[in-house]
Design a protein around this nucleic acid. Structure first.
Lengths: 174, 174
DNA sequence: ACTAAAAAGATTGATATCAATATAAAATGA
DNA sequence: TCATTTTATATTGATATCAATCTTTTTAGT
């Protein structure tokens, strides 16, 4: 009886995927960098994600949630969840937008700003040390390439039935 | 009364961090790529992480957990958790290592191999499309740079009291 | 062999992540 | 205005992620 065993993937293919998959490489680097910054920021009471989120809220005008989620390239529901512990700690305030009662406006509290200010020098040191350890030019090039990848996945040609509707502008400045 | 308000971080600093932080860029790219591959692999019943994990188990000899966790640059406890749904679905078997009863040996089941085989062409198409959308040469360069970053954070000079002890070799091949 | 130290995983608790879905408010069109 | 659609966000459920801690087993030192 011929029960095909042809579902076997050759080991060479495994090695190929391991070595070439950009998604895998990105996840690994993201995890490694997250640990690096989480460790460094721990004395400040922040994770890398919380640092990035709070830093993105340090603006002249409190932004609504959508643009912040887009800026961080995260799902809107992830942002809702990520805000919870920061609200609980009193570092971020989430208020109703008086001009559009569906929306929320996000802002750092005074204490939130203080926490962020204490974390900033740690970020600077950690990032400087990282830059230094990388081969000359790697840092800027990597940043550029990562930005390209992040941006690319947004710009789906929107085939008339896309599940995820646009969420407005993603820029902080300009 | 002079209550210093000097905890204010200038907006220009926020813009600097947004534009230069490699950790933030890596997290964003990782999230974007994860969504891309998760969407593509959904019909196969796998997430990008499950695909990578299962592919890393497609070897001649069932590996123990430590090296697999190291290969994926994830915490050992994360691997334990990530295996649960795959075990439940009967795609991965976790057996005691007869030669070291502390350890486990990880292997794909027949059904796991079949699932992986069905996912492989999706990965190929998705990755090819991604490569094509990237500027010429970006893909290989990005892969190289990401690898450098992932590797770097391991090689801590181990200051005689490091919390995370070494976990053995990380290579699949050679 | 015995004890101390090291190694391999598992468990718990907190946060992060996203899909699917729900709710409420605003915008649009007739 | 009123019904429909769109937009902005929240909720639920499942998985992912890691720190802290625990158990079991092996290894080293004596």
């Amino acid at each position: 009886m011929i029960m095909s065993n042809s579902v076997e993937i050759p080991f060479s293919t495994t090695l190929l995927v391991r070595d070439t998959c950009l998604c895998l490489h990105a996840q690994r680097a993201a995890r490694a960098l997250a640990r690096l910054f989480d460790d460094a920021l721990r004395p400040a009471g922040l994770t890398n994600g919380q640092f990035s989120l709070m830093m993105s809220l340090n603006r002249p005008e409190p932004p609504p949630m959508g643009p912040v989620a887009t800026l961080l390239a995260m799902d809107q529901t992830t942002l809702t969840a990520a805000l919870k512990p920061l609200q609980r700690k009193g570092w971020v305030s989430v208020m109703e937008n008086p001009r559009d009662r569906r929306g929320r406006l996000l802002a750092l509290t005074g204490e939130g700003k203080a926490v962020l200010a204490r974390a900033l020098p740690i970020w600077k040191e950690t990032h400087a040390a990282l830059d230094q350890k990388l081969p000359e030019g790697s840092s800027a090039r990597l940043r550029q390439d990562l930005q390209t990848v992040s941006g690319m996945t947004d710009e789906t040609p929107a085939p008339a039935g896309s599940r995820r509707p646009p969420q407005g502008a993603r820029a902080i400045g300009e």
